[in-house]
Computed example of a mutant assay.
Amino acid sequence: MASALPPYYFRIRDNGAAVFRINTENRQGRIDMEQIAIVNTNRGDFKPHGDHELSQDEEIAINDWINARQAQLAARDLDEMRRTRDQLNLMTQWALSRATDAQLEELTDDILLAIHDLRAVLVRKKADRLGKP
């Protein structure tokens, strides 16, 4: 048995989503999707689409989705940084055990600059955090 469809569908796009109200209450039994809003997750806001006036229930559903999406994206960012740390460790092992002189020559300067930049930012941020009361 199929489960009931949610009342709203959020089509993910860069920096947000398009919000659609789902309607299956028609004679053909088709799924109708009416766009009702545009969401910007970077700013944490939304606006109605066209002439549509958002109901309180729609606004609550959109705000709930924004909060959940922002939490999901923050967790994804942190996970990506943890994977980057793992990649740095794997790169170290690769440079020690398998890299050829030609490979190291090709990559060393770019990697050293990137690591130097990262180190400078991390040290500055750490100093800022330690300097706070």
Results as ranks from 00 to 15, higher is better:
Ile62Phe: 02
Ile12Asp: 09
Ile31Ala: 01
Asp117Ile: 06
Trp65Ile: 01
Asp51Gly: 09
Gln87Ser: 11
His49Gln: 08
Ile115Ala: 13
Met33Leu: 09
Asn42Asp: 10
Arg13Ala: 12
Ile12Pro: 04
Leu112Asp: 11
Leu78Ala: 08
Val19Tyr: 00
Asp79Thr: 10
Ala37Met: 03
Leu54Glu: 05
Arg129Ser: 13
Asp109Asn: 07
Leu54His: 11
Asp79Asn: 13
Ile31Tyr: 03
Asp45Phe: 00
Ser97Ile: 12
Gly29Asp: 09
Leu104Tyr: 02
Asp51Ile: 10
His116Val: 09
Arg82Asn: 15
Asp45Ala: 04
Ala75Glu: 07
Leu118His: 11
His116Leu: 12
Ala102Thr: 05
Ile115Val: 14
Leu5Cys: 06
Ala114Trp: 04
Gly16Lys: 03
Arg82Met: 13
Asn63Cys: 02
Ile60Leu: 12
Arg85Lys: 15
Thr84Arg: 10
Ala99Asp: 01
Arg27Gly: 04
Glu25Asn: 14
Glu80Ala: 15
Leu118Arg: 12
Thr100Trp: 02
Leu78Cys: 03
Gln103Gly: 07
Leu54Ile: 06
Ala17Met: 06
Lys125Asn: 14
Ile31Trp: 04
Ile111Trp: 06
Arg43Asp: 05
Leu107Pro: 00
Arg69Gln: 07
Arg98Glu: 13
Arg43Tyr: 08
Trp65Gln: 03
Phe10Arg: 14
Val19Ala: 01
Asp128Lys: 15
Leu113Gly: 09
Glu58Trp: 11
Phe10Glu: 08
Asp14Met: 10
Leu130Tyr: 13
Glu106Val: 00
Gly16Ala: 03
Arg30Ile: 05
Asp110Gln: 14
Asp32Met: 08
Asp14Lys: 12
Thr41Gln: 03
Ile36Lys: 00
Gly50Trp: 04
Ser97Arg: 11
Pro48Met: 05
Asn67Trp: 05
Leu96Thr: 05
Tyr8Lys: 01
Arg69Asp: 03
Asn42Ala: 09
Val123Phe: 07
Asn89Tyr: 12
Leu73Ile: 04
Pro6Asn: 08
Ala71Lys: 08
Ala37His: 02
Arg98Ile: 11
Arg21Thr: 01
Glu25Met: 10
Met91Glu: 06
